[in-house]
Design a protein around this nucleic acid. Structure first.
Lengths: 226, 226
DNA sequence: GAAACCCTTCGGTCGGGGCCGAAACACCGG
DNA sequence: CCGGTGTTTCGGCCCCGACCGAAGGGTTTC
């Protein structure tokens, strides 16, 4: 009914919570893969694929295919500036993210992030590893030390193989509830797998929750002292 | 899933076509009533009322009650700037409004706007009135001259009464298809009523279209020469 | 007080679109 | 050629929310 550019089409794209999560994740300047973005938004890869297709077709993001992966970045600074302007407006009007609810508390404690652990407990594990010299943590990179490799072997986790075309061994993933890093990458995935297999953690049929068993609480406290 | 302001809530508000129409209408700086905004967005008053409540609660617009009417304005320049930024982004990405279709052409020629005429024909009438000195048009106001009053009386349209609490006699309404003003207000409404009653125009049961009868085409051409 | 007018609330309908699981498709390494 | 992995397509479910008609407050004019 109005002339001019169709403001509602683009606003509707940003208006979906999952797509907004994707866009704000891209606002950091990184170029994550489709799967990582799905994890970030808390949705299944299939759903994320649909969202990414919409955003790509609208010209808001640019895909960059490389091997099996597809990495995404914001299409330009015009997009970034529009997102920032909206953020400023939202902040000015006092519309903050959902305040913590009852089940939100459990999520903040421990949950699945893609294929590794996240939440307060995961951050504590990361800190413990770093404090005892099992990980070398730089601004850009995370790697296990020799002593760290031995420590993981003692937990029944041999270091996953590394190489070109394979998944990075370690990554630092920013935890949204803690605003600090937890362990991601192939090693983070192996750690979660080990915890599930040892029945330290159980994952419900649905959702991102993780249930910490009593045995798991004790084992994790011993393995990762503060 | 992310911290920070909830960008998606506000974007979702702007993302609905009806609400976007309302907001862009307010972007002109006018303060239309709820009914006018409903007309602008092409929705029923009941629906518009719901949208306006949402926008008000979100702090994007400010209501101003006056008598039976409720007028609305944008809540501030932050809102306006966010809308403009989105417009710019939409334009840059080539997302224009629906391209003119077959029935869109008819709408651009002549249509109903609330309770008066709009479109190319309505703009031509407005220009004709102004050119012949029947209307005094200032930047802020429109008013009929004495000669204009006589002219309208000759058409069978006595000047509607004016006064406090009553509808403004004349208003200039910006035409979206022509980007110029047409005659609104009580006088504009009376003109449309006269045209319908003289069977110069017919309005279908639904939609904003107006059908110009042959007699109407002749009568309007005589009454409002270019 | 009655009537006209503007706006809102309420109930109910309905369509769009987000979501997931499963399967198909691409790509890599062996 | 064959598993492992990342991504997309497909089919179907389901819920949110936009929409309208009708009825109910408020307000102004006669």
């Amino acid at each position: 009914m109005k002339d001019g550019p169709d403001i509602s089409r683009i606003a509707a794209l940003i208006g979906d919570p999952a797509r907004a999560s994707i866009l704000t994740a891209l606002l950091s300047g990184r170029a994550p893969s489709a799967g990582e973005l799905a994890c970030e938004a808390g949705i299944a890869p299939a759903t994320a694929s649909g969202h990414l297709a919409q955003l790509t077709e609208a010209g808001l993001i640019w895909p960059h295919k490389q091997g099996r992966h597809r990495y995404f970045a914001l299409a330009g600074d015009e997009v970034a500036s529009a997102l920032e302007t909206l953020s400023g407006l939202a902040a000015a009007k006092g519309h903050l993210r959902s305040r913590p609810g009852p089940r939100d508390a459990a999520l903040r404690e421990i949950r699945v992030c893609y294929d590794h652990m996240a939440g307060a407990r995961a951050v504590a594990i990361f800190d413990s590893l770093a404090a005892r010299g099992y990980l070398t943590v730089t601004r850009e990179d995370v790697a296990p030390t020799d002593r760290g490799a031995a420590f993981f072997a003692g937990l029944g986790i041999p270091l996953p193989r590394t190489g070109p075309g394979r998944r990075p061994l370690c990554r630092a993933c920013l935890d949204w509830s803690e605003r600090r890093s937890h362990l991601a990458g192939a090693l983070g995935a192996a750690l979660l797998t080990r915890c599930l297999e040892a029945d330290w953690l159980r994952r419900p049929a649905r959702g991102r929750h993780l249930h910490l068993t009593p045995a798991g609480a004790q084992a994790l406290a011993e393995a990762f002292p503060t």
